[in-house]
Design a protein around this nucleic acid. Structure first.
Lengths: 208, 208
DNA sequence: AATAAAATCCCCCTATCGGGGGGATAATCT
DNA sequence: AGATTATCCCCCCGATAGGGGGATTTTATT
């Protein structure tokens, strides 16, 4: 038989923490090695617990969950972090994932899905609640109603890669003046007058 | 009772297409309104089928699935597109999602999950296979072992926003020469000698 | 066939920028 | 104590960006 998946829980609400501990502890193949009410109280001992997966809340006294992620990663480079929170804000989700969280579940997630997700992160997967997946996918989707033409979009993308006019001209096999002309039109359409502003406007509206 | 979810299938392999048609057609609450073997053959009539969800393959004769997405979106702005393919390449996934696909499943997905995912996209969700979710999440995660210091990372991020040295200096309330100095160090650490190359190297290694 | 939109190229101008070189100093962290 | 980081200073110069003013051709769309 395979060894149990070792889970640590960091969650400030006593009721919820105990609930998860009970739920996971009673699931076949799972084992709760520790449960803390904050990152601060976990910091000194969690490395010794050697969890495979850490269930992490975001709203917490002291160091919040988002900032705890990189610290936990440093203490336990091989542990996977699964965020379990009520927050569905885009900013928090992307910060959490950017900091190294491997999954993001909201607290209305059914017990069975939580148990399944713990296994999934341990196996290198990336479980997400439906709403989270939706936001994540949305973040990839370009705006279909861009005022920019294909060529303009392409050139603006190169500009956002830090390329100069002449570099772009060379790569697209067009004249430097043509690039200039396109950039002028991009600026007019986006109502800006600098690269930085064009990139900002285009990213905000997901034209690139 | 709610009305059936109308599904269109675009898939070139006869066996697979017929298999999906049978599977979905026999599921309670689902209805296959049409099944095509290519985008080209679907183009003229699919709008009249008024599907809620389009199951789309990527490898196909004629216009491929990736390029078909924006066209389908134009024909059926309210339909959701669910990619069902064997490909797990990062490039294809991000292109598909960027073009407007709402979900991405690989062909080893169990039948029940496919049926469930169709409902999920129809409801605005973003279903993904485990491996896909993993890649998507990975794409958000920064490299924890960046050689760049916090300040350097911050400045490189501003550079990737297209900002000039003086602009960065102003925004960070530091001297222009300090910014210059940081950029020099960034270039040394990344072994590059231009903004474009620095951005490229940093993005490739997910330092920013 | 006609109109519009997109893509291509050409000239003027000048202040700013970017990258290469050479340093120094104080603050932090380890 | 030593290393890293963040800050600031000087030199140089060619390339760049953005502001004007245009024109022509190709490609869609009607």
């Amino acid at each position: 038989m395979e060894r149990n998946i070792k889970v640590s829980i960091i969650e400030d609400d006593d009721t919820i923490r105990n609930g998860y501990t009970f739920l996971i502890g009673n699931s076949e193949g799972y084992e709760v090695v520790s449960a803390y009410c904050s990152y601060d109280s976990a910091a000194h001992t969690i490395a010794a617990d050697k969890p495979d997966v850490i269930l992490l809340d975001i709203e917490m006294p002291g160091i919040n969950g988002i900032d705890a992620i990189p610290r936990l990663k440093k203490l336990l480079p091989n542990a996977f972090i699964l965020i379990l929170t009520v927050y569905e804000s885009e900013k928090l989700i992307f910060e959490a994932l950017g900091n190294g969280a491997s999954g993001y579940l909201t607290k209305n997630t059914p017990s069975a899905k939580i148990i399944e997700s713990i296994k999934e992160v341990r196996d290198g997967g990336g479980p997400m609640s439906i709403n989270i997946a939706k936001m994540v996918i949305k973040s990839f989707q370009k705006n279909q109603e861009s005022p920019l033409s294909k060529r303009e979009t392409q050139i603006l993308e190169q500009i956002s890669d830090g390329k100069s006019r002449s570099q772009i001209a060379r790569e697209l096999f067009i004249d430097l003046e043509t690039v200039r002309s396109h950039i002028k039109n991009i600026y007019i359409k986006l109502d800006v007058n600098s690269r930085a502003d064009a990139i900002k406007a285009a990213r905000q509206n997901r034209f690139i």
